[in-house]
């Protein structure tokens, strides 16, 4: 036995890797959510936070590489597992019923790829800012990248907000099975904690979803940042943009 045979060849090891990579992303999703929630504190904190993160490029890139690697492994392995699992029942049942398998657990191969599609869009939207290249130029009063304004601008579009909401719901579904599932895969369930962890997992994924949804919802329905946005838009480009500096 070596690590390669464990993680790549054995049925259980493969699941461990899926769970570990999933766990890395769970960690990110929660951290990222906490970061995002700073938008409720107004423009400065979140912009400063973003600036702070970008001020340590090594750390940022290490994190990015870990995330990308984890995502790639997660995807490759889940595809591998799915192929094997299909092969394990070559002849389907003509009539199939489920007793207790949740819808979420049975649709991981749907919710997962859709979340991936969202992540790609999201990177183009807020990280590389290819969807609206103007975002690249926006800075706030302190000269930091104006993440706050970007969010407000982005989520002012019902279409974009709707898409984010959909993605977050899918993520929530993925995690509602994923949380408890990873506890099971990593062998940290016990007789007593088993149902606790699965309800806990579901609650946590709903909380994550509510957290994420709160931002577009606040923008779209709560009028959050409307004033800031109008104010920044009224300012001469020279002041709120890096374009002319």
């Amino acid at each position: 036995m070596n690590l390669f045979t464990f993680f790549w060849k054995s049925s259980i090891g493969k699941k461990w890797l899926v769970a570990i990579t999933g766990l890395i992303w769970v960690g990110y999703v929660i951290g990222h959510l906490l970061g995002n929630l700073q938008v409720f504190l107004g423009p400065e904190p979140i912009n400063e936070y973003a600036a702070f993160l970008h001020s340590i490029p090594v750390g940022l890139w290490i994190a990015r590489i870990v995330l990308i690697a984890a995502l790639v492994l997660h995807i490759v392995l889940t595809i591998k597992l799915t192929v094997e699992n299909r092969a394990a029942r070559p002849e389907r049942y003509q009539k199939r019923a489920y007793v207790q398998a949740t819808l979420a657990s049975r649709t991981m191969m749907l919710s997962g790829p859709l979340v991936l599609a969202f992540i790609i869009f999201h990177l183009l939207h807020f990280t590389t800012r290819d969807i609206n290249r103007d975002y690249r130029t926006w800075v706030d009063g302190a000269g930091n990248t104006d993440v706050y304004r970007m969010l407000i601008a982005g989520f002012s579009s019902p279409l974009i907000s709707g898409f984010y909401a959909l993605a977050v719901v899918l993520l929530c579904i993925h995690l509602s099975h994923g949380f408890s599932s990873l506890a099971q895969t990593l062998g940290i369930n016990s007789k007593k904690t088993m149902s606790l962890l699965s309800t806990g997992g579901r609650i946590l994924s709903v909380l994550v979803a509510i957290g994420y949804l709160s931002v577009p919802a606040a923008v779209l329905f709560g009028g959050m940042g409307k004033a800031y946005k109008t104010e920044r838009e009224r300012l001469p480009v020279a002041i709120n943009s890096t374009a002319n500096q």
Binding site: E84, A88, Q184
Partner: peptide
């Protein structure tokens, strides 16, 4: 045999009531 995705259908049909905790 396939891999486990933690669907727990096995536990639900098991006539001997083997709990899924044995999989953990």
């Amino acid at each position: 045999f396939g891999n486990c995705s933690n669907y727990y259908e096995c536990e639900a049909v098991c006539p001997a009531e083997i709990p899924a905790i044995v999989i953990t």
